[in-house]
C-alpha cells in the first residue's frame, strides 16, 4: 500500500512540478547561451554599422540581465517546489480530499511516509536541476564576471563539475567524499524542513477552529525560530568551549550536534504527524 500511496503522491506532484522544472531547464539553457553570446559580441561592433558599439553594449547588457533573472527564477523554482509539496500534503489530508485519503485502507504512518518520500524525491530532483543550471550558468557568466571569481560563492565540487567535467569526480576520492557528505547533509536538511512544515500544517488543521492555513504558516515560522534558537545556543556553548579544546574538534561537534538534532526532530515530527492524523483530525 505504501508503494501505491507513494506512486499516487509522486504522480500528483509531478503534474505541476514536471512542467515547472522543464521550464527551469529551458531558461537555464537559454540563459547560458545568452551568457556566452552576450560576451562573444564584444569586438563585433563593426558588424552593426555606425551604432554598433551601442547595440553591442545593449545586447550584452540584456544578456547579463537575463542571466541575473535566471538566477532569481532558479531560487523561485526551489521555493515553489517546497510550497507545492506542502500544499499537496495539506489539501490531500485536511481539505475535502481528506474524506477520500483518510478512509483508504492504510495506516496513518503509511500516509505520512508516502508524502514524505514523494515530497523529498521532488526536492532532490529540484536541487539537482537547480544546481545543474547554476553550474552551466556560472560557466556562461564567466565572460561577464572577469576577475570576479565565482569560486567563493559555489560549492567546490560544483565548480569542479562545471570546469573539469564529471571525470574529475572519479579521479579524486576526496571530492567524492565531500560530495556524499554534502548530499547527506542537504537531504537531512530537506527532510527536516519538510517534516517541520508537515507538522506545522497538521497542528494548524487539528488545533485551529478557523484560518487553519494561517495557523500552519505561523507554526512553521515559530518552530523554525525555536529550532534556530536551540541550535544557536548549542553553537554558542561549543564556541565557548573552543578555549579549552581544539577548533577542529569543536567544528566537528557543531556539525554532529546539528545533524543529531535534525535527525531527532525528523523522527519526532513524523511521529507527531501520525498521532495527529490518527487522533486529532476532524474534517469540516
Amino acid at each position: 500500500m505504501l508503494e501505491k500511496l507513494f506512486r499516487t503522491d509522486f504522480k500528483a506532484l509531478s503534474r505541476i512540478l514536471l512542467p515547472l522544472h522543464l521550464v527551469v531547464v529551458g531558461i537555464g539553457v537559454l540563459a547560458t547561451f545568452a551568457g556566452f553570446a552576450g560576451y562573444s559580441l564584444e569586438g563585433l561592433d563593426e558588424l552593426f554599422g555606425a551604432a554598433g558599439d551601442q547595440i553591442v553594449t545593449l545586447l550584452s547588457g540584456l544578456a547579463a540581465l537575463f542571466l541575473a533573472l535566471s538566477m532569481f527564477l532558479l531560487f523561485c523554482a526551489c521555493v515553489t517546489t517546497f510550497v507545492v509539496v506542502v500544499v499537496r500534503f495539506y489539501r490531500n489530508l485536511f481539505s475535502d480530499e481528506g474524506y477520500l485519503t483518510l478512509t483508504l485502507p492504510v495506516t496513518a504512518g503509511q500516509l505520512v511516509t508516502a508524502k514524505v518520500l514523494a515530497g523529498l524525491l521532488w526536492m532532490v530532483i529540484d536541487a539537482l536541476v537547480v544546481l545543474g543550471c547554476v553550474a552551466t550558468l556560472s560557466a556562461g557568466a564567466e565572460g561577464f564576471t572577469g576577475d570576479m571569481s565565482l569560486n567563493s560563492s559555489l560549492p567546490a565540487w560544483l565548480l569542479g563539475l562545471s570546469t573539469n567535467g564529471l571525470a574529475s569526480l572519479g579521479e579524486d576520492s576526496i571530492t567524492v567524499l565531500v560530495l556524499m557528505r554534502w548530499w547527506a547533509q542537504t537531504i537531512l536538511q530537506m527532510l527536516f524542513a519538510l517534516l517541520v512544515a508537515y507538522l506545522s500544517f497538521a497542528l494548524g488543521a487539528a488545533l485551529a477552529r478557523q484560518h487553519k492555513v494561517a495557523a500552519g504558516v505561523g507554526l512553521f515560522i515559530g518552530i523554525w525560530w525555536v529550532y534556530g534558537m536551540v541550535v544557536g545556543a548549542i553553537d554558542i556553548f561549543l564556541v565557548i568551549m573552543m578555549a579549552y579544546v581544539s577548533t577542529d574538534l569543536i567544528m566537528g561537534a557543531m556539525s554532529a550536534a546539528s545533524a543529531l538534532i535534525q535527525l531527532g526532530a525528523v523522527c519526532g515530527c513524523w511521529a507527531l504527524c501520525v498521532f495527529l492524523l490518527k487522533h486529532r483530525v476532524n474534517l469540516t
Binding site: 501505491k4 489539501r91 475535502d96 480530499e97 474524506y99 478512509t103 492504510v106 474534517l283
Partner: peptide, 29 residues
C-alpha cells in the same frame, strides 16, 4: 476501511482529477 464504502457529504475528488484517474485510484486501493 477495506470493507466500508463511505460517501461523505462533500465532494472529495480533486478538481484536476479525471474520471478515469478516479477509477484507477479506487481500483488501486
Amino acid at each position: 476501511k477495506a470493507i466500508v464504502s463511505y460517501l461523505p457529504e462533500r465532494t472529495y475528488l480533486a478538481p484536476s482529477m479525471k474520471v478515469a484517474a478516479a477509477l484507477d485510484y479506487f481500483a488501486d486501493f
